[in-house]
């Protein structure tokens, strides 16, 4: 019965049916289903399937982004139960943010969505995020990777500020930092001492997998 409902959740996610996915996830959790199973088999595995279909050219990026958004909504339902049950892990954890002063989250959302299709557990802090909040999230979530995005030339320097704040908090060595955004270059990434850079979403996934030492190069 629960298996059927989890399959139903997976199907709703694949069909990009937000209402049904959220309803099924709610019913599963309210009905006492194992949150780890709901997250893994209902949502995370389905995102891998979304990634496979993207790679095969059957789905396009806007659909991947829509799937990632439904994933996020469902995860909001599953997560409290998961924490209460004391169990949780999906794979490598990524914290992402558009830096302070920048309200553009298009690139970050593309990258976040693609990351989910590669099995990463993505925590999106949103846009216009101050360095202190990013440091806090790193301390709390202990991610493998932090991804920083900026679209404006005027907010790119904020990426350096985040790195400095991580350094100051003594967290810089525990996490890999990736930077991206239209004005960001590989050279800039090197200059500020970031660990990774990618010019687009598919490359970001490849770079992230390389940073965490994953052999799969999804999207390759």
């Amino acid at each position: 019965m629960v298996d059927e409902e989890i399959a139903d959740l997976a199907q709703a996610l694949l069909a990009l049916d937000e209402q049904r996915a959220v309803a099924v996830a709610r019913a599963l959790i309210d009905g006492g289903a194992d949150p780890q199973a709901v997250l893994q088999r209902g949502l995370a595995d389905t995102m891998l399937e979304v990634g496979r279909r993207w790679n095969a050219g059957e789905l396009f990026l806007p659909e991947v982004v829509a799937a990632a958004e439904i994933f996020r909504l469902c995860n909001e339902i599953v997560e409290p139960a998961l924490i209460a049950a004391g169990g949780r892990t999906l794979g490598h954890r990524v914290v992402m943010a558009t830096v302070k002063g920048d309200l553009h989250d298009l690139g970050k959302n593309m990258v976040g969505a693609m990351m989910k299709t590669a099995g990463f557990e993505v925590h999106d802090l949103g846009k216009d995020v101050p360095a202190e909040r990013i440091v806090e999230a790193v301390r709390e979530l202990e991610p493998s990777i932090v991804g920083l995005s900026s679209l404006l030339t005027t907010t790119v320097p904020e990426q350096r500020a985040v790195l400095a704040a991580l350094e100051e908090a003594g967290l810089r060595r525990s996490v890999k930092v990736m930077v991206g955004g239209a004005p960001v270059t590989e050279e800039w990434a090197r200059q500020i001492g970031a660990d990774g850079f990618a010019p687009n979403a598919p490359e970001a996934v490849r770079a992230a997998l390389a940073l965490v030492g994953d052999e799969r190069l999804a999207g390759a």
């Binding site: 993207w54 050219g57 396009f60 990026l61 806007p62 593309m110 687009n200």
Partner: peptide
Amino acid sequence: VMDLRSGA
């Protein structure tokens, strides 16, 4: 337009 696959 956006390339629907890569987003570029």
